[in-house]
């Protein structure tokens, strides 16, 4: 049996994921996407360190729960979580997006241990997750599939193809998590193509809907675990988040969507993420 981390341990795991995201942003010189990665750090900590059944020593374990990162540009956060769980050497992290790296600019199932499926160009992940969910059901496996969606990518029509099909298929082993940080590459989702009423949209497609503060670890864990057990319909967790969460000058500043920090900014960010012991 895998040890289940406490909420305090999960907060610590999220802090370490955030530090790795900043390391990747600065040291790998990608440039990577620190803002969108920080936004989902808490959710990923909860998934990888508690909610999902998975075995870092056996990444292909047939009974594992699966994760699809539909907003694939936020993969530094997933790489950090995977390294934290021991799927691969932490030294890999600063190679993200470099020539020859096993950590690609978007998730690659054949290059990176722990990546369940190649994903990342926007709008595709929910369909991929639905396919995994239907396959697991056919195999009579009681595993969950978690799909992390960006809010902006809900502007892709294909997402709604999958939303309709998942409820038609009663894919109750599928959980979508919307990282609702109200930003996309060019600006605010509220200005570009508003997504409201978010909750009503999913409800009208017959999904089970939870809304959470995507940075409140207790709430995250509680709703993810409820979603995993929920039967009859797929579940969406609308996670209200802050883009760049955890680094003061990155929070809600969309210029950090994709950007390399300066040395000074890097030092500041790492000081803020130093944790209680330092």
């Amino acid at each position: 049996m895998i040890m289940k981390s406490s909420v305090a341990e999960l907060r610590e795991a999220a802090r370490l994921i955030r530090r790795d995201i900043i390391d990747i942003a600065y040291l790998a010189e990608g440039p990577s996407h620190p803002g969108p990665a920080l936004s989902i750090a808490d959710i990923l900590a909860a998934l990888y360190f508690r909610v999902m059944d998975a075995d870092p020593r056996n990444p292909g374990w047939a009974e594992r729960d699966r994760l699809v990162l539909s907003k694939g540009h936020a993969c530094p956060a997933v790489y950090a979580a995977l390294a934290g769980r021991g799927y691969f050497d932490r030294a890999w992290l600063t190679t993200v997006r470099r020539l020859g790296s096993r950590l690609q600019g978007h998730p690659d199932m054949n290059k990176t241990p722990g990546i369940d499926i190649t994903s990342g160009s926007l709008g595709n992940g929910l369909s991929l997750g639905l396919g995994i969910a239907l396959a697991l059901r056919l195999l009579r496996k009681n595993c969950g599939v978690f799909v992390i969606l960006g809010d902006g990518e809900l502007q892709e029509g294909m997402i709604w193809e999958a939303v309709m099909a998942a409820s038609a298929q009663k894919a109750d082993n599928l959980t979508a998590i919307v990282d609702y940080n109200h930003f996309q590459s060019c600006g605010g989702t509220d200005e570009i193509v508003p997504l409201e009423p978010m909750r009503a949209k999913w409800e009208s497609f017959n999904w089970n809907v939870f809304e959470i503060n995507g940075h409140d670890m207790e709430e995250i864990v509680s709703r993810l675990e409820m979603a995993k057990r929920f039967t009859g319909r797929p579940t969406v967790i609308i996670a209200h988040t802050v883009k760049g969460k955890g680094v003061s000058f990155m929070e809600a500043d969309n210029s950090w969507h994709q950007r390399i920090p300066s040395k000074e900014q890097y030092d500041t960010a790492m000081r803020e993420l130093a944790g209680g012991s330092e």
Partner: peptide, 16 residues
């Protein structure tokens, strides 16, 4: 929904 069909197919293939 052909795009969804194709990506669902990918998901199923990734699961064996």
């Amino acid at each position: 929904a052909e795009q969804n069909m194709t990506a669902v197919a990918a998901g199923m293939a990734a699961t064996g």
